[in-house]
Simulated scan of single mutants.
Amino acid sequence: MIRCEATHAHAHGAPDATVTLDYDARMLRRKRLTTDAGEDFLVDLPATISLDEGAVFLLADGRQVEVRAAPEQVLEITGDLPRLAWHIGNRHTPCEVQPDRLLIREDHVLEAMLRQLGAHIHRVTAPFRPEGGAYGHGRTMGHDHGHSHDHGHHHDHPAEA
Results as ranks from 00 to 15, higher is better:
I2F: 02
I2Q: 09
T7H: 05
A9Q: 06
H10Q: 13
G13T: 03
V19T: 06
T20K: 08
L21R: 11
A25Q: 15
M27P: 01
R30K: 13
K31H: 08
R32W: 07
T35L: 01
D36V: 05
D40V: 01
D40Y: 03
T48D: 02
T48K: 07
S50H: 13
S50T: 11
E53A: 14
G54C: 05
V56E: 04
R63H: 10
V67Q: 07
A70R: 15
A70T: 07
A70P: 12
V74I: 08
L75M: 15
E76D: 05
I77E: 04
T78K: 15
T78D: 08
G79N: 09
L81E: 13
R83M: 14
R83A: 11
W86G: 12
H87I: 03
N90K: 12
R91D: 15
H92G: 06
H92K: 13
T93G: 04
T93V: 14
P94T: 02
C95Y: 10
Q98C: 12
R101H: 15
L102F: 09
I104E: 06
R105G: 14
E106V: 15
V109G: 06
V109R: 15
E111C: 05
L114E: 10
A119M: 09
H122T: 10
V124D: 04
V124E: 09
P127R: 06
R129I: 11
P130L: 02
P130K: 03
E131T: 11
A134P: 13
G136M: 05
G136Y: 03
H137C: 03
G138Y: 01
R139Q: 15
T140E: 09
M141L: 07
G142Y: 01
H143D: 15
D144M: 05
D144K: 12
S148G: 11
S148N: 12
D150H: 11
D150Y: 01
H151W: 01
H154F: 00
H154R: 00
H155L: 02
H155R: 02
A159H: 08
A159T: 07
A161W: 05
A161N: 13
A161M: 05
